[in-house]
Amino acid sequence: MRAFFLAAALGVTLSAYDAAHLKKALEEKECIGCDLRGANLSKIDFSGADFHGSNLSGADLHESIFEMGDLSDCNLSGANARGALFWKGTMQRSDLTYIHAKSANFKGTHLEQSNLAHADFRGTKSWKANFTEANLMKTDFTGAELGDAKFVRTDLRSANMKNALLWRTQFSASVMSKAQCAQAKKEESLLDNDVVCR
């Protein structure tokens, strides 16, 4: 019973978006510092939109387009972003913990200082994405295309890189497992001398 109430309360919290903010987001394709928790924003073209500083935790963004959009300083934890397109967008300092972003497109996306702990990045197209100083604790990059992406000052040891494409991926001042280092070298990644393989 207690668990039920807790779950119900959590559910209310996750979808407690501000209706006026949702209306603004849908009509103007822009909403800065908005409360969009649990909102349905799926399959919509938000190219170039500005959502910086907004709370999109638990929101449904699947198959939406945020091409060159500003999602910096956002909370996207637990959001459903499967198949979404964030091409050349900005997601710096955002909370992407537990985001479901399988097969999403992060080509050229700025993810510097973002928190990707437990994020599902399986099969993403993340060519040239910038993960500088991102938290990658248990991030799942299985089968992700990370060619020419940049990992600077990151700890990748708990991240899953199985079958990830790492051609010309740049690793600098980062900590990696020995298996990850071997994979990176095999895939012709660019590992700086300050990368620690342990």
Binding site: W127, K128, E145, G147, D148, W167, R168, E188
Partner: peptide, 10 residues
């Protein structure tokens, strides 16, 4: 386009 380079060179 790094993907283009990947296809052409690799």
């Amino acid at each position: 386009c790094p993907e283009c380079a990947y296809m052409k060179q690799k």
